[in-house]
């Protein structure tokens, strides 16, 4: 029987490509067939050498184990090198110092930690960065998260044009964040400034707030998808019971929707704590390595320190690692606390 390569109706301009599509699908099938017959051959050869015996549970278990090991061998190796070893190396690095003359690292003890603790308590730039990072984190939790939830709820409740809005809200994930940042910067600094007479980014009093606005404005996408997805899985009966009892939409949002998707919210809240130390606030997109001091965040400062491939950056590796180690301790503490509190005081599913 001849195989059907086009089984769905083809419309419009796509018709022009039918020959191409057919050739392409034939090609795919051809490769797939070859792969399959190869596999069959190997299998047969294997069977010939090791004729099948009466299967024992143990034997099957052993086979499974071998297959299991084959599957996880690479991931585990990768994990050992790029997670375990990288992090051990990072800890070691934080006790070292770079010697420019010989381009090698040598141990200096706690010097990097001392320098870092001095800077974070005394250096004006670093203190500003700490303040900015905290501000940005609070804004993501207190403003961005509720907005995400509300928008998701509207989409879930099918406001008029919900599908178009879903597309627009997903655009920040598709268009490169770099392009969005640059167009935002050009628009605000050049076009908007000429209408309202104020350069919102360049003004010290509004600069970081504009950055925060940008971070929220351009951060929709994945979270909304996850939340709408979670909302769509809420059981219909629960909602209907609520409606029978005369709940308004707001009450439904508060009493039914939120508790139901609480676990998903917890995932994002818990995973978001690290952003306190890693969020660059799009500054590298905006300004490259030379953002104004009053805009910088911790994530940005430490990224810029090490990003170049030269001696000056190599010399900063130990300092950055030391800071990272301390940040990790703080982040881990906060995360565990947040997780504990969210689980203790959050709504329980009955």
């Amino acid at each position: 029987m001849k195989k059907q390569y086009i089984d769905e109706p083809v419309k419009g301009i796509k018709k022009l490509f039918i020959p191409l599509i057919i050739i392409y699908r034939m090609f795919l099938d051809f490769i797939a067939d070859k792969l399959y017959s190869l596999e069959v051959k190997i299998h047969q050869a294997y069977r010939k050498r090791f004729p099948e015996k009466r299967t024992l549970i143990k034997k099957k278990r052993k086979k499974e184990l071998i297959f299991f090991i084959c599957l996880v061998a690479y991931p585990v190796l990768q994990f050992l090198v790029f997670y375990v070893f990288v992090n051990i190396n990072s800890i070691l690095l934080s006790f070292k110092k770079f010697d420019t003359e010989t381009a090698t690292y040598f141990y200096v003890g706690l010097e990097n930690f001392k320098n870092f603790l001095r800077d974070i308590t005394q250096d004006y730039g670093m203190i500003t960065a700490v303040k900015n990072s905290v501000k940005l984190y609070l804004a993501t939790v207190l403003i961005a998260l509720p907005l995400n939830l509300v928008f998701s709820f509207f989409l879930y409740k099918k406001v008029p044009g919900a599908n178009s809005f879903r597309t627009v809200l997903f655009l920040p994930q598709i268009i490169s964040s770099l392009v969005i940042s640059l167009m935002f910067r050009y628009f605000v600094e050049n076009a908007l400034a000429s209408i309202i007479g104020v350069n919102l980014l360049q003004n010290k009093s509004s600069g970081f707030n504009t950055i925060i606005f940008f971070c929220i404005w351009a951060s929709f996408g994945t979270q909304i998808l996850m939340y709408t997805n979670a909302m769509s899985k809420i059981s219909k009966e629960l909602v209907e019971v609520g409606q029978l009892e005369g709940m308004s939409l707001f009450q439904e949002f508060w009493h039914v929707t939120l508790p139901s998707i609480y676990p998903t919210i917890v995932v994002f809240l818990v995973a978001g704590v690290a952003s306190l130390f890693t969020h660059q606030a799009g500054l590298y997109n905006f300004y490259g390595p030379s953002a104004r001091q009053d805009l910088q965040t911790l994530g940005y400062i430490f990224f810029v320190k090490i990003v170049r491939n030269n001696d000056a950056a190599f010399a900063q590796y130990p300092y950055a690692s030391a800071a990272g180690l301390l940040f990790t301790v703080v982040a881990a503490t906060i995360t565990l606390t947040v997780k504990h509190l969210l689980e203790k005081y959050g709504p329980r599913e009955d």
Partner: peptide, 24 residues
């Protein structure tokens, strides 16, 4: 064990190991 590793690494963030990654 692998499952627990995933959960733990998701919950406990590690910050600032980029220099080490570059070195490795």
């Amino acid at each position: 064990l692998l499952y627990s590793i995933v959960i733990i690494t998701m919950i406990l963030p590690i910050v600032g190991n980029l220099p080490s990654q570059i070195q490795v």
